[in-house]
Design a protein around this nucleic acid. Structure first.
Lengths: 238, 238
DNA sequence: GAGTGGTCTAGACCACACG
DNA sequence: GTGTGGTCTAGACCACTCA
């Protein structure tokens, strides 16, 4: 009977109302926002509905709620952004380029003390090591130096990494459960420069990523990219 | 009557059950997970309750849901991580160091065509420009080259940036509503090297951040850090 | 005590996908 | 048609805060 296409879910209407108000500064950071009861009255919906809208806004970090006190516009201090580190293969193909990987090393080695500790192994324990150059249309984009805990991926040495990437493989056999990384700029070493076809000392974007599962570390990867050919992008929308 | 302290909300129990199962690989990526009806029967709770648990897991990216089909364990492709770009002042003080800022430029200038477009202004329109070196215990950590849309922060030129940072000030007067950034490695130019007390050509970590509000761009900042002294860190926990 | 958010229930109607 | 998720309701009990 009524317009069937203008359908917007009631909880979404409430949420949009509040979000727009926040964007326009109706409630500056720290201000008290309408209570659930007020919104129930204003929109003529049930309390569960406005509760959902508010709970989602809280999840997005836009409001802060305190039992017994009220809902407040969140102070906008945090600049936490999401940085997506894709699988390089998908990233390259998404740009319409051809991805190829050259496997320089794929072997079992013996962990030194420092590496063993970072992988949760005993010193001298075996580790899997790969060193791979990834190219887009023939141009080196990444030198991937990776150590893997054999317990997490026993078949790692048998995989053909010209057909699938270590990231992709590891995500399949060992569902990722935690990761930490650091991003820095450093000068290419002589070997890195040779592998990446750049001059020694050229600036490189280096990402070091360590991945863990509930039962221990899975892998440590050092990803070196020529600064002139690669950058990370991210965004942030409240 | 029953143990009053072991209280865990029913929706949280359901959620934890599913999350643990995912962590242990009970449902590999892509697998069909229990339906709402099954979970209702298993936990003896109402459907709204299991729905909330599943909806939150979906929000966290752990499951994918499709009306008429079912709930599936999410493929773990995305490596979206949170990268926190703090206010540099807070970051330095948090390390117990002394932060000082040297304001090299703080003036109104005329926007060239490229800059004007990126700030949503007409070419030749006035823009605010600051160039500031940030030091930690006397050592340069960041060269901040920033252009600001005058409409978003009319008082920008009167602020004493040795006492507060542009980031901090802008967050106060113009609540952040969207941001995009890129991270790259590049070689220090002669001027950058001089300002940062490093050698020309040294690798630097460069973050370019553009901030928008609903009514238009606010500011564009180019933050240059000596690669040897600064790196970004992040993490990711599902 | 009055007001707030935190949570749960037992039903309901709908849109969608599949056989 | 059956099963799925998407959503809503009208009530309820609780814990908390503040006056």
């Amino acid at each position: 009977m009524v317009s069937p296409d203008t359908a917007e879910a009631p909880y979404a209407r409430v949420k949009r109302f509040l979000k727009d108000g926040l964007a326009q500064g109706d409630w500056p950071p720290g201000a008290l926002m309408p209570s659930e009861a007020e919104l129930v009255a204003r929109f003529g919906v049930s309390r569960m509905t406005v509760n959902r809208a508010l709970r989602e806004l809280q999840g997005e970090g836009l409001v802060q709620r305190s039992q017994g006190i009220g809902t407040f516009a969140a102070p906008r201090h945090r600049l936490a952004s999401t940085l997506t580190i894709h699988d390089l293969h998908e990233e390259i193909e998404a740009r319409g380029q051809h991805h190829e990987a050259e496997v320089l090393v794929q072997a079992q080695e013996t962990a030194g003390a420092a590496l063993a500790e970072r992988l949760g192994l005993a010193a001298g324990a075996p580790v899997f090591h790969t060193l791979i150059v990834h190219r887009a249309d023939g141009l080196p984009l990444q030198l991937e130096d990776r150590y893997v805990n054999p317990a997490a991926a026993p078949g790692y040495l048998e995989v053909d990494f010209t057909r699938t990437t270590p990231t992709h493989y590891l995500l399949q056999v060992a569902p990722l459960w935690q990761a930490e990384y650091s991003v820095e700029a450093s000068a290419a070493s002589a070997e890195e420069a040779r592998r990446l076809a750049i001059a020694e000392g050229e600036p490189c974007l280096v990402v070091v990523r360590r991945t863990r599962r509930h039962d221990g570390p899975i892998t440590i990867a050092r990803l070196v990219h020529p600064g002139a050919r690669y950058h990370l992008e991210g965004g942030f929308k409240p």
